[in-house]
């Protein structure tokens, strides 16, 4: 079973996941403001981000881009990500 690396995820993700960087019309539930005045060390590039899916069933996830946090709910997107994990032999616990 091949390890699911970040690089392989991006290379092998289905077409629908390729729109992650765009996120059209995603309902943003909350945006946490960046700590006033603090400068982010090791500034990340504008093309990278982290998605944390906290609840697959509810579609609750956090998108981290640079120093910003965006909380959103999209069950369809969460299900797609879970499907990708399962297809790589990494089924999520119920």
């Amino acid at each position: 079973m091949a390890d699911l690396t970040r690089r392989s995820f991006l290379q092998n993700a289905p077409a629908t996941a390729a729109t992650l960087s765009v996120l059209p019309a995603m309902p943003a539930l909350a945006a946490t403001p960046y700590s006033a005045g603090a400068t982010a060390p090791r500034a990340t590039s504008a093309t990278s981000m982290v998605i944390h899916v906290g609840d697959v069933a509810a579609g609750e996830m956090t998108l981290l881009v640079g120093a910003q946090e965006i909380v959103l709910r999209d069950p369809g997107l969460a299900a797609s990500l879970a499907e990708i994990a399962a297809s790589a032999g990494l089924p999520l616990q119920a």
Partner: peptide, 18 residues
């Protein structure tokens, strides 16, 4: 930072608010 990603070549990326 809220998330820290350790890459395979000692590269470290940080994301999110403090």
């Amino acid at each position: 930072r809220q998330a820290i990603i350790f890459g395979p070549n000692a590269d470290i990326d940080e994301y999110g608010p403090w």
